[in-house]
Amino acid sequence: KLLSSIEQACDICRLKKLKCSKEKPKCAKCLKNNWECRYSPKTKRSPLTRAHLTEVESRLERLE
């Protein structure tokens, strides 16, 4: 599967780190437990900047 097509777990399953069936409108866990089942939009991760990478590398060197 391509990364862009990976389905996201519902908010509660993601928060509780449960295996989500990803069914809509309610996944199996939410249906069974009568929880409100919501699927928040995916958040875009910002790409690493060179400055951040350099900072992490220098912190790693100090720890070694």
Rank of each mutant, 00 (worst) to 15 (best):
E57Y: 06
C10I: 02
A9K: 03
E57H: 06
I12P: 11
H52N: 07
E55F: 12
P47M: 06
P25V: 02
K19Y: 02
A51D: 05
T49K: 00
C10R: 09
N34E: 14
R62T: 13
V56G: 03
L60M: 12
K29I: 08
K24Q: 14
S40P: 03
S5K: 08
R62S: 11
P25A: 03
K17N: 07
K24W: 15
N34T: 14
K1M: 15
R45A: 03
E36A: 12
K29S: 05
T43F: 08
R50N: 01
K16A: 02
K26N: 15
W35R: 13
I12C: 11
C30V: 05
C27E: 03
R45W: 01
L2Y: 14
S5L: 11
K17C: 07
C27P: 06
L3I: 10
C20E: 08
E57P: 06
A51K: 10
E36N: 13
K44G: 00
C20V: 01
R14W: 00
L15F: 11
I6W: 09
S21H: 04
L48E: 01
S40A: 08
P41N: 05
K42E: 05
L15I: 10
K19W: 04
C13N: 01
W35E: 08
K42N: 10
R50T: 05
K16T: 01
E57V: 07
E36P: 14
K16N: 08
Q8H: 11
S5D: 15
I6F: 13
A9E: 00
K24T: 15
S40W: 05
H52D: 05
L3T: 11
P25M: 03
D11I: 05
T43N: 08
P47C: 05
C10T: 03
L3W: 13
L48A: 00
S5W: 04
E23I: 09
V56C: 14
K16M: 01
L18K: 04
K42Y: 15
V56S: 00
P25N: 02
P47A: 06
C10Y: 04
P47G: 06
K26E: 12
L18P: 10
S46F: 02
T43G: 09
L53F: 01
S46Y: 05
K44M: 15
P41M: 08
E64V: 12
L18R: 02
C30E: 05
S5E: 12
K17H: 09
K29W: 00
T54L: 07
K26H: 15
N33M: 08
C27N: 02
R50K: 03
I6D: 07
K17M: 00
T54A: 06
L2W: 14
C13T: 02
C13E: 07
E55V: 09
